Each structure stands twice: as C-alpha cells, then as structure tokens.
Amino acid sequence: MDSLSIPGAWLHTPQIHADARGSFIEAFRAAEVAAATGHRMELAQVNCSVSVNGVLRGIHFADVPPGQAKYVMCVSGAILDVVVDLRVGSPTFLRWESVRLDEESRRGLYIAEGLGHAFLVLSEQATVTYLCSTPYTPSREHGVHAFDPTIGVEWPIRDTALLSERDAAQPTVKELMEAGALPVYSECQAFYASLR
C-alpha cells in the first residue's frame, strides 16, 4: 500500500489477473492493511452505494474514539475520492487529496479514523463499496460542507453536483471548530496506538 500525503490514508493498487474469461483481483488483504497501519482493521459493516453521475457524497467523519476507518473501492464506474484531514492539531490539518477510483484500476483507499471522506461520481453510474471498522451510529456521524472554501476541494463540477439534503446543510469547518466538534489529532494518535 502506498501512503498519501495525509497521514492515515493509503492507496492499494491490486494486481489484476485477466484472461479471456474476465479478471480477478485480491481487493482487500488484512495483512497489507495491518502492515501499513500498524494494526488490523476490524470489519464491522460493509456498505454499498449506487449513484448516478454528478452525485457528491460527503465530506463525512465520525467521533474518535471509536471513529470509523474505511476501505473504499469503486467496483463499477468511476469516482473522484477525496480524503480531508479534519484532525485539529495535525501537521496536515485541512489538507485534502483526491484519488480516482474506478473499475479499470480496481484500486482501494484506506481512510483512518478522524479523516473526512467524500466522493464525486464521474461515470454515468458508480457502485462503491466501503468496508467499515465500526457500524453506522447516527449520533457519532458528522459532516462538513463539501464546498467549504476553508478546505477548498477542487471538485470538477460544482453547480450541477447532486447532494443529499443532509450534505447540502452540513456546517463549515469554522462552525465545527467553534462547536469543538472536529476530531483532535492527539486523541486520534492515542486511539491509533490503542489498536496496536
């Protein structure tokens, strides 16, 4: 797995075995994730979303602890997947990085607890699966508005992006900071250490 510029995010590019029948990959290997992160990823839930072109989901994050680590794959179509460092006190606080995930490369993205996650559908339709370390718990789930200028994600579309009502109403980073609702880097580091 290759680390991104944001600590806690890794990209896995699998070897694709193809022949006349089609192709086969090892989409997720727990040992590779453990080698990169320093701990095994507990698997508590698998999510699957199907979205049309222009759908923008996120930026989502969960309270740490326990947070929610994700391993994200686009199994059909193509998405622009975005990771945002929302951990107050992190050396890369508010940095974002984008990666194209698609059915051709079959790449997967690991996103540690405390990081924000979003994606934009680039193809006509996309199916995205997420392996999650904890189950969905509404009271611990939060979001930041995807178009917050403080973060400044360079989405390829903006005016025509399709957001849920919930995502369209998400607060800004400034509002979350004032409310003390963002993850704290030192607390995230302590949580990661507890997983080892």
Rank of each mutant, 00 (worst) to 15 (best):
S76P: 03
P66Q: 05
L80Q: 09
E165G: 13
P91G: 07
F93S: 05
T92P: 14
D102H: 08
E113A: 12
G67I: 06
N53H: 15
L122C: 15
S133A: 13
A44M: 04
L120N: 07
C74A: 15
D85W: 01
R107P: 09
P138I: 02
E97N: 05
T137Q: 11
Q170H: 03
T92Y: 13
F119A: 07
E141Y: 03
G114F: 14
L56R: 02
L120E: 04
P138F: 10
V50W: 01
F147W: 10
P65D: 05
G89V: 06
L43V: 13
E141A: 06
D148E: 15
G77M: 12
P171Q: 03
S49H: 05
S139I: 00
D85L: 02
I59H: 05
R87V: 00
V173G: 13
Q45N: 11
E154I: 01
V46P: 02
R166Y: 04
P135V: 00
S90G: 13
H145W: 07
E154G: 03
P65S: 05
L94K: 10
E113T: 09
A44Y: 02
Y130M: 09
A146G: 03
L80A: 13
S51Q: 02
V46L: 02
R40Q: 15
Y71I: 06
L122V: 14
L162C: 02
P135S: 00
G152M: 06
R95I: 05
I59Y: 01
Y110L: 08
E113F: 02
V84Y: 07
I151Y: 10
L162E: 01
P135Q: 00
P138A: 11
H39F: 15
G77W: 15
H145K: 04
G58N: 12
I79D: 08
E124K: 11
W96A: 02
Q170D: 05
I79G: 09
V50D: 09
G108F: 11
E141W: 01
T150P: 10
V128Y: 11
S105R: 14
T127D: 03
V84E: 07
R107T: 11
V50T: 07
A168E: 07
V128H: 08
E154M: 08
R166H: 11
F93N: 06
N53D: 15
A62M: 08
R87S: 04
S51E: 06
G58I: 09
S133T: 10
D85H: 04
D148A: 15
L115G: 14
G54I: 02
V128S: 08
L131I: 13
I111V: 15
R95D: 15
G108W: 07
D148C: 13
V173L: 07
R140G: 06
G143Q: 03
S133E: 14
G77E: 13
S139A: 12
P135H: 01
Y136G: 05
Q125S: 13
A62E: 12
I157E: 08
V52T: 14
P149A: 04
I111K: 11
H60E: 09
V50G: 00
A62H: 10
R95Q: 14
I59Q: 05
L122R: 14
V82S: 10
A112T: 10
R107F: 08
W96R: 00
S123E: 07
I79F: 14
V173C: 09
T92R: 11
V173M: 10
G108K: 08
D85C: 00
S90C: 07
E97D: 04
A112M: 12
I111F: 13
G116T: 00
L86K: 07
T172F: 10
A168F: 08
P156A: 10
